[in-house]
Simulated scan of single mutants.
Amino acid sequence: MREKRTVQSSIFHFFADHEIGRELQAISNGLDSHPEILELVAADLQEVKVNDCGRKGLPVESVLRCAILKQYRQVSYEELAFYLLDSHSFQAVARLPLEIIPKKAVLQRTISRISDVTWEKINQALPGHAKAAGVERGQVIRLDSTATDSNIHEPSDSSLLWDSVRVLTRLFEQARELSGGESLPCRSHCRRAKRRMCS
C-alpha cells in the first residue's frame, strides 16, 4: 500500500550548509506548507496498483518531491536516482524511507503518472504562496525547450535566399494559373539563387 505522507522526518536527513542546501531546505519548507497538493498527486497515483504485501511503493509525498527535484536540477531520471543515493540534501528533500532507494525505472514510472492537470494546479498554488510571502511576484515565466534532431537542414543566408526565391517563384506560377494565364510581371531568379547557394 502506498503511503500518502511521511509523518515524521528521519533524524538521518539533514541539509548541507551550502547555498544549494539552503535552497533545497526552502523548497522543502514550501512544500510542507501546501499539504493539499498531495491529494492531487495521490489521485493520479491511485491508478497504479501497489500490492498490500511485499515491498511498499514510494510515498506520494516522495514522488512529488522527487519530481520537483528533477525539474529543479534539470537532471535525467538516471542522474536523479544517483543524487538520491549519494546526496544527503536530496534525500532530506525527497523524504524517502530509509529502506527505499528508488531506481531510474521506478522514478520514471511514478513521476510520469502525475498528470498535466495536476501540474497546472501545483503551479497555481506554489507561486501564490511565493507571492504572499513576498518572494516572487509571478509575473514572468522562463521556458526551456528540448532540441531534437530533424531532417531540416541548417539554415544559412544562401540557403534561405534559395528557399525564398524558389517558393516565391512557385507562388507566382500558381497565381498566374489562377488568373487565367494573364502575364504577371515576374522573372524567375531560381538559377542565380541556386548558383549562389552552391558556390
Rank of each mutant, 00 (worst) to 15 (best):
P97E: 15
G180H: 12
L160P: 10
A92Y: 00
E79S: 10
K4R: 05
R5N: 03
I20H: 03
Q91G: 01
V48T: 10
Y77M: 09
D17K: 00
K103W: 13
R195L: 01
V165Y: 15
S89D: 00
I122R: 02
F172H: 09
R195A: 13
F90V: 07
C186G: 09
L31D: 05
L31A: 04
P127R: 04
N123G: 14
F82P: 07
C198G: 00
D149Q: 12
A67W: 00
R65Q: 04
A43K: 02
L143S: 07
I68A: 04
A42W: 06
Q108S: 12
M197N: 01
L98D: 12
K104R: 10
F14G: 00
Q124S: 03
F14M: 06
A132F: 09
N151G: 13
N51E: 15
P127N: 03
A42C: 05
D149N: 04
E61R: 09
K4T: 15
S28P: 07
D52E: 12
F12G: 02
H189P: 07
A105Q: 13
R65K: 10
V7G: 09
R192K: 13
A175V: 05
H34I: 11
I27R: 07
D52K: 14
S112I: 07
I152F: 15
E47I: 11
Q74R: 03
S188V: 08
Q91M: 05
L69R: 00
L161A: 14
R176W: 13
Q91I: 00
D149Y: 09
S33P: 02
K4H: 08
D32Q: 13
S33D: 12
R142V: 12
T148S: 13
I101M: 03
L160D: 07
